[in-house]
């Protein structure tokens, strides 16, 4: 196997993989960031309003049913080829775990806690920001973590329709199957994505340590 001796030893490969890794991080962080903002809003809305809850959740889960290649492709005529269609599509995919966990996180907050906050004269906005969201945060963070893992994996498919990221390396490999060198590309792209996923996971672990108050930690 020439994976380490030749493939990774080649500085050109290393440079390419490094650049694609950065692109992949961009392709993950931006959609997840946008999905957090939108998902927080939709999640709070779905928690507040029983009428909106099921429409919001079913629309958001419908996004995830649409195969990624199709969603990337539909967006290309609208926003052009490149990172943009991928970012939009990945944002839509990342919404479901975030919205769902925001809703269930908010529901998991003890009603007595919210009532006592109300009883002490906190306004609805204060209750949300000072009591409900901090207590829902562990569940919400778990949702963001799942959304990130999902996004990292799906982002690879963006390369098929001209997107950036580590999917390009995998795609290069696929086009050359079963020629020599194709396995190295497949392994290289896949391995770097797995490493990225592990790093993101560690990142969330650290975020959890830093942001989840000791009083509600497991």
């Amino acid at each position: 196997m020439t994976f380490f001796t030749e493939y990774l030893a080649d500085p050109r490969t290393r440079d390419a993989l490094f650049e694609q890794t950065l692109e992949h991080i961009y392709l993950t962080a931006v959609p997840v960031g946008m999905a957090v903002v939108i998902g927080l809003f939709l999640g709070i809305l779905a928690h507040r309003s029983p009428q909106l809850r099921s429409p919001i959740l079913s629309v958001v889960s419908t996004f995830l049913t649409i195969p990624s290649l199709a969603l990337f492709a539909i967006l290309i005529p609208i926003v052009g080829i490149g990172a943009t269609p991928a970012i939009i599509a990945l944002t839509l995919y990342a919404l479901l775990p975030i919205v769902r966990n925001t809703v269930s996180g908010l529901f998991s907050v003890d009603r007595a806690v919210v009532e006592s906050a109300k009883g002490m004269g906190m306004s609805a906005t204060m209750r949300l920001w000072k009591i409900e969201l901090p207590n829902a945060w562990p569940v919400m963070l778990a949702g963001v973590r799942v959304a990130t893992l999902l996004t990292i994996g799906i982002a690879a498919i963006a390369a098929l329709v001209g997107g950036p990221g580590l999917g390009q390396e995998i795609f290069t490999g696929i086009r050359r199957i079963p020629a020599t060198g194709s396995l190295e590309s497949l392994l290289g792209g896949t391995l770097f994505i797995v490493i990225l996923a592990v790093l993101f996971d560690l990142f969330y672990l650290a975020i959890g340590r830093l942001t989840i108050p000791r009083g509600i930690r497991e």
Partner: peptide
Amino acid sequence: GQAIPSLGLLALLFYLFRTQPALPS
């Protein structure tokens, strides 16, 4: 396993079967 991207896993599995002489390629 969720950390493994679908595209990479599919391609690797395909490569595996494609390069086995005993199996229909």
